[in-house]
Design a protein around this nucleic acid. Structure first.
Lengths: 111, 111
DNA sequence: AGATGCTACCTTGCATAACAAAGTAGCTTA
DNA sequence: TAAGCTACTTTGTTATGCAAGGTAGCATCT
């Protein structure tokens, strides 16, 4: 019922899980990271709702920490469930990437 | 405003454009093709609405043709706009695939 | 003729994802 | 105290994909 069968919705979610898994981080920095990776269209309006959703699903946990400059930051890290979900997502990404590549690349050939 | 900035929503749409571009086809067969490619979760409830949408957006055109067996089929082919959209989609797919791969694969390394 | 089953298309309604926009608040610098 | 950056949150909108159900043509079997 909640096994994501929708094609690719949730790629952002998976990317966020992966980045957090690599190193505990917070929303604002996440948006910078994603941009660095080349996902430049991603806005905070997308990121924070996802973080809240992941939190509610117990895939990540956040703790407030003071920062030198500016307001406190909410640092997130993956839970066990989150790591499991990340692994699942990575599999699904592979399972979808291949067919899509095949469909798109074999543009003019007859079998 | 309509330049798809959403991350990956619409991959199905792009795949359908690509398959139709390769060879004029109709909805029912499309679902078989997608399955053959490995996108087995895709149901008619997804395909036909997309075909109608693409039609409305003038990316594809359909013509009814009699079939030897069973009811008439609606064969679709791409319009010029459709071919343009397909090219755009393929670029976007590449632009997103790379970052996502990078984010997912470099799971444990520190730069 | 009637029933079943496959082909083939279409529609309605729902869940969810991503986004824009706006709001809140802390800290710094001028 | 005003401006500007950091940082988080919420609300409302759009669009995607799907399940479910409906319509209908044709073939086959009984």
């Amino acid at each position: 019922m909640s096994l994501r069968s929708q094609l690719l919705k949730g790629v952002l979610e998976g990317c966020i899980l992966s980045i957090i898994n690599r190193q505990s981080t917070y929303g604002y920095e996440l948006s910078v990271r994603l941009q660095e990776f080349g996902l430049s269209d991603v806005s905070e309006g997308s990121i924070y709702p996802i973080l809240l959703r992941l939190q509610k699903e117990k895939l990540i946990e956040g703790t407030m920490q003071k920062s030198d400059l500016g307001p406190k930051r909410k640092y997130y890290h993956l839970t066990e469930d989150g790591q499991h979900a990340l692994r699942e997502f990575m599999e699904q990404w592979e399972n979808i990437k291949l067919p899509v590549d095949n469909i798109l690349n074999k543009g003019g050939e007859t079998d």
